[in-house]
């Protein structure tokens, strides 16, 4: 029975992936890409990688989907001419993709299966119960630190594309929602639930599924809903609180790492006694930064016209 479910999932993933790249317009491709992300999240869940499943659903399908839809809406507002619709197949791209898939498949069978490192003996020193959190914020904290800085760099890149005259304007497009209408009510009903869920995900990340990235994405989504339904005023680059929130995560992370060096350990090493409170502090700071950065990435720079609902 479960084999049938897994096979159906595999067929669905391949079918949706093919539908996404097989042409038929940008809108169709985006919708199929979002569906693809949801199916892949289900596949990760079936494989038992619940943390990855949550991240894929929240970031891969949800946030990237919103980002692509917003980009599509902007292209339409600008009346950008879509590239001439080619009826033929994009043969070079198809060949390159197929070759890559074959190479990866070959590597999968040819290389020896790596044995996963045994985390059991060192887990008590990590300060947390969730192995994924232990790896992300303790054993391989270096990667996570750089990831949080990459996010910030991406946002700065987007902001750099803004024109000078838009620099002081409120960020993002102007969203319209009727006062007291359906969208405005939705924007007031959903955030309390979303806030509770986002904070829960971060808190639960220490010992079970969840973490800063998943929780931060949920919180970013809450902020986006509030922005799009005009419940929250659009932010500005000049807001000090906003800038502080952007750098809080990487800054706290770096400080924790440097403090470890100052107290005689290696950079980013955590002493077992202090690991839990330090990890929790870093996670909370990271969550705030990730939430604000992702939300600002989606709404983008200022001055790209109006958004009709």
């Amino acid at each position: 029975m479960t084999l049938a479910l897994d096979l159906a999932l595999c067929v669905l993933i391949l079918g949706v992936a093919l539908a996404s790249v097989a042409g038929g317009g940008v809108f169709r491709a985006v919708i199929f890409f979002i569906t693809y992300g949801l199916f892949v999240a289900m596949a990760w869940a079936r494989l038992g990688a619940l943390d990855v499943a949550l991240a894929e659903a929240a970031i891969g399908a949800g946030l990237t989907g919103v980002l692509l839809l917003a980009a599509l809406g902007r292209l339409r507002r600008m009346n950008a001419t879509s590239p001439p619709h080619r009826t033929g197949l994009h043969l070079p791209a198809a060949f390159a993709g197929a070759a890559l898939a074959c190479a990866l498949g070959w590597a999968w069978f040819a290389l020896p299966a790596p044995s996963p490192p045994d985390l059991g003996p060192v887990m008590p020193q990590s300060g947390v119960g969730n192995r994924v959190t232990a790896v992300l914020l303790n054993f391989r904290a270096w990667d996570t630190l750089l990831e949080s800085i990459v996010l910030l760099a991406a946002l700065l890149g987007v902001w750099m594309l803004a024109q000078d005259k838009d620099w002081t304007a409120p960020l993002g497009p102007r969203y319209h929602a009727q006062a007291g209408g359906v969208l405005a009510s939705f924007g007031r009903l959903l955030p309390p639930v979303g806030l509770a869920f986002g904070v829960y995900l971060v808190w639960a990340g220490a010992d079970s599924t969840g973490g800063a990235f998943q929780g931060g994405t949920v919180l970013a989504a809450v902020g986006l809903v509030a922005l799009m339904s005009n419940v929250m005023r659009p932010p500005r680059v000049s807001q000090g609180v906003l800038r502080a929130a952007l750098v809080l995560g990487p800054a706290v992370f770096l400080c924790a790492g440097l403090l470890a060096t100052a107290s005689g350990g290696a950079f980013l090493s955590l002493s077992p006694a202090l690991a839990k409170p330090v990890i929790l502090t870093i996670e909370v700071a990271l969550t705030i930064s990730i939430a604000v950065t992702l939300a600002l990435l989606v709404i983008g720079a200022s001055g790209d016209g109006e958004y009709a609902p």
């Binding site: 359906v182 969208l183 009510s185 939705f186 009903l189 959903l190 639930v193 609902p309």
Partner: peptide, 21 residues
């Protein structure tokens, strides 16, 4: 119950917005 309620809320809202568009 929460999952159902949230799906209901989202579906109802989206249906209204799509219909208006």
């Amino acid at each position: 119950a929460l999952i159902w309620a949230l799906a209901l809320l989202a579906a109802g809202t989206v249906a209204q917005l799509v219909a208006r568009a």
